[in-house]
């Protein structure tokens, strides 16, 4: 599904070049559930943003569903990710001024989905996530776990092939975290590829990820489960 080869990212600070990613080689197949772990500052979020095409990189090759991302223009890249990728954030990042319903509907507005279809799709996912009763509430009126559910619903509404999650359970208590992980597994079973960044070993085990990567010092390497 996606492949990164010798990807480097840096920023220039005066004469100095500060690396943010170093020699990233990564291949992820369709249907995989990938976990990336590593200490703070090791570049996990940066890598996830690069994979999600929210951020650019400076050197290397990135192929995504057959497209050479490094050769695409900004606009094409936006089109590519809005068709194929859903994002889930640690801080949920719901729009405060919109209701649960409107928040979930947002991605569809930018994909020119017809009004009646939008209605059906939102109703469907509200039902599936058991949050129909909350659809007219504002994010501020929900608990953290509920907000993250909405965040995931929003990420999945446009039926993306790839779900990217940056510490999706980072702000939740362990019970809420477990629920989210169960949901992820279910989504993954239905065919969505998932890449998540996580801090917690336990969450990670719960997730029974198909592959686990370890990031340190801006580099990434595969870690077999037996390493634990």
């Amino acid at each position: 599904m996606l492949e990164l080869k010798k990807v480097y990212k840096w920023v220039n600070n005066g004469n100095q070049r500060i690396f943010l990613l170093k020699d990233i080689n990564l291949t992820i197949n369709e249907g995989e559930f990938v976990s990336i772990m590593g200490p703070s500052g090791s570049g996990k979020s940066t890598l996830l943003n690069v994979i999600g095409m929210l951020d650019s990189f400076d050197e290397g090759i990135y192929n995504f569903v057959g497209e050479s991302v490094h050769q695409l223009k900004e606009k094409q890249r936006t089109n590519l990710y809005k068709q194929h990728i859903g994002f889930v954030f640690q801080a949920y990042h719901l729009i405060d001024e919109l209701t649960v319903y409107e928040n979930i509907e947002t991605p569809l507005l930018y994909q020119n989905v017809k009004g009646s279809d939008r209605k059906a799709m939102v109703a469907d996912i509200l039902d599936r996530f058991n949050i129909v009763a909350k659809k007219d509430l504002f994010p501020a009126q929900l608990s953290g776990g509920q907000q993250q559910l909405v965040g995931i619903a929003r990420a999945l509404i446009a039926r993306p092939k790839l779900l990217l999650a940056d510490e999706p359970t980072g702000n939740l208590n362990s019970k809420q975290g477990e629920e989210i992980m169960e949901l992820f597994q279910q989504v993954n079973k239905e065919g969505t590829t998932i890449i998540q960044v996580t801090h917690s070993e336990k969450m990670q085990l719960m997730a029974t990820a198909s592959s686990v990567y370890w990031m340190a010092l801006l580099k990434i390497k595969l870690r077999s489960r037996q390493d634990n």
């Binding site: 089109n79 990710y81 729009i95 930018y110």
Partner: peptide
């Protein structure tokens, strides 16, 4: 700004 960031990630074009 946060809302704008979110909308961009959701695929909103700059002009919009």
């Amino acid at each position: 700004t946060k809302e704008v960031g979110i909308r961009k990630v959701m695929g909103a074009p700059v002009r919009e």
